[in-house]
Write a protein that binds this DNA or RNA. Sequence first.
DNA 1: TTGCGTTTTCATTTTTTTTTGAAAACAATG
DNA 2: CATTGTTTTCAAAAAAAAATGAAAACGCAA
Lengths: 170, 170
Amino acid sequence: MPDQAKVPKVKSTLQTDNSLELESIDFFVRMMGILGMPRSVGEIYGLLYFSEVPLPMDQIVAKLGMSLGSASQGLKTLRSLKAVRTTYVPGDRRDHYQAETEFRRLFSNFLKEEILPHMESAKERIDRMYDALPEDSEDQEFYQIRIEKLKKLTRAGGRLLPALAGLLKL
Amino acid sequence: MPDQAKVPKVKSTLQTDNSLELESIDFFVRMMGILGMPRSVGEIYGLLYFSEVPLPMDQIVAKLGMSLGSASQGLKTLRSLKAVRTTYVPGDRRDHYQAETEFRRLFSNFLKEEILPHMESAKERIDRMYDALPEDSEDQEFYQIRIEKLKKLTRAGGRLLPALAGLLKL
DNA sequence: TTGCGTTTTCATTTTTTTTTGAAAACAATG
DNA sequence: CATTGTTTTCAAAAAAAAATGAAAACGCAA
């Protein structure tokens, strides 16, 4: 219940002595949490963010003490957001993962993947509201004004959000 | 797992014949869902949004077919976001609730309550990263750059988000 | 094509979140 | 100040989300 902010805890099974990694994982677990991502996704990204070399999945699993399944799923999510990139390492069959650190791009990807689809269906739903508007009721006008307001909201959102990515100068 | 958008379903126990209400509830359940609010909160707000008269809690409970506990909790959340207002109705002991429909204000309240606290703690966490920076390592510079990047991110976020509320002209 | 290292899938388990319902607290009224 | 109508609280139940782990699938390389 979001009265208080959700404050996810960082798993203490981390196999590392690098406290920067710890802070990073903590940071991104929370950040991803705000965006509605599972903690495993934040953990992986947090680990990768402060890794100078690309890491293969089994090392991620080992360092974070998470299951193969979670790692695979988490990396899939991160890949779909383009928050992570695979690099080829000669003589190694494993995929090596690297964090994409251009937040501007990350943000716009997130918008495109997670938010804009919602905006689309919101617009459809508002159209359906017009259809559902009772023809005769004396509340006609009230309802109409309310629907208009929603329409303006989605329009503003649709214009504002993409513009936001542009404003995000880092 | 947010690969696909979460698409909450509208409970079908709704005691109403007003299909506009149905659409509204659907709309806000999803919208609140994006923002990480439980469905009950979306249901209540959705119902109130298209109600010309303020509704007392027991009517909300009756219309939505939800428990008293959920309604009380949900209204508490909505009150704390100032998404809902109580109005006095002469000769009635019950509180009557009305939706606040100025989205600009709603948005800025949401920011203040749910987002800005996170930004604060993010800044603290970044400070701790500097402390955790290994003095000697040859990766010094790499780490430093990464930390800087995070700092810029939070700064941008801190400036951008509040400005956003201002841009939200409806 | 077989074997082996690696990754994905997915049914099951675990954890977390949300809802419920009944008791407690509250508050106006007679 | 006792009664009654209303709202809140909170332990327990239910539902939803995430993690696990083992089997299946994949894809090289010998």
